[in-house]
């Protein structure tokens, strides 16, 4: 399964993402953002970082990079599309997901392991998980507060406590309804703020992220 890992100027998680995909048996390939051809790829991941310096707004300029028309084409064709952190911000700016991300509630950069609860298994990221499952992966963002435009959001993951409790105490960045990840209606386009690719081996403190990345890889179908 060939997966394009999009690299924008300022992307910095592409190698971690590629490593995590490889561990799950996929064949990742780093693709520069000026590429206008993703034919032959079964899916695409937009990794974290600071694409185009996050100038103007996070993801605002990246969404007009040439590669994004191909990302949209794959999304519309039902191929798995995953945006992590900055990639989530780009997918929102590109309107492939609804909502937007802005500065954290406490205007501080958050970098620590957090817990999320699986709210829906109807997505390429969570199809292999179980409803209500609690997963521990790191959060690493300043502009991670998800703002939902209405109530039509499709929630995939919510920030939670050790036993899956939902409470503002466990909402690290003030996201609407503790939302950590969302999908489109079909479930093939998913974005999340925390980083599953940084928790794919026990050596990294948690291997919970491997479940999510593995789910994404399993959902890839030959193009």
């Amino acid at each position: 399964m060939r997966v394009a890992v999009a690299v924008f100027p300022g992307t910095n998680c592409e190698h971690d993402v590629a490593y995590a995909l490889e561990l799950q048996g996929a064949a990742p390939e780093l693709v520069w953002h000026t590429s206008e051809d993703l034919s032959g790829f079964d899916g695409v991941v937009l990794p974290g970082g600071f694409a185009h310096g996050d100038y103007l707004r996070t993801g605002a300029i990246a969404r007009f990079s040439p590669i994004m028309s191909e990302v949209s084409r794959l999304a519309q064709a039902g191929r798995p599309v995953l945006g992590i952190c900055n990639g989530f911000q780009i997918l929102c700016e590109a309107r492939l997901l609804s909502g937007a991300l802005m500065a954290n509630r406490d205007t501080s950069f958050i970098c620590r392991p957090i817990r999320v609860r699986v709210e829906s298994t109807n997505s390429v990221l969570t199809a292999g998980a179980s409803q209500g499952q609690v997963i521990q992966i790191p959060l690493n963002s300043y502009e991670g507060r998800f703002v939902a435009p209405g109530d039509d959001d499709l929630v995939v993951l919510r920030y939670c406590g050790p036993d899956g409790e939902l409470d503002e105490r466990f909402n690290p960045n003030g996201s609407t309804d503790s939302i950590a990840g969302t999908s489109n209606a079909a479930g093939n386009v998913v974005g999340l703020m925390p980083h599953p690719e940084r928790a794919v081996e026990e050596l990294l403190g948690s291997a919970d992220g491997a479940l999510l990345i593995g789910s994404f890889v399993t959902s890839l179908q030959p193009a």
Partner: peptide
Amino acid sequence: QLLTNPVL
């Protein structure tokens, strides 16, 4: 198109 995000 670019300068503002209508959600925010």
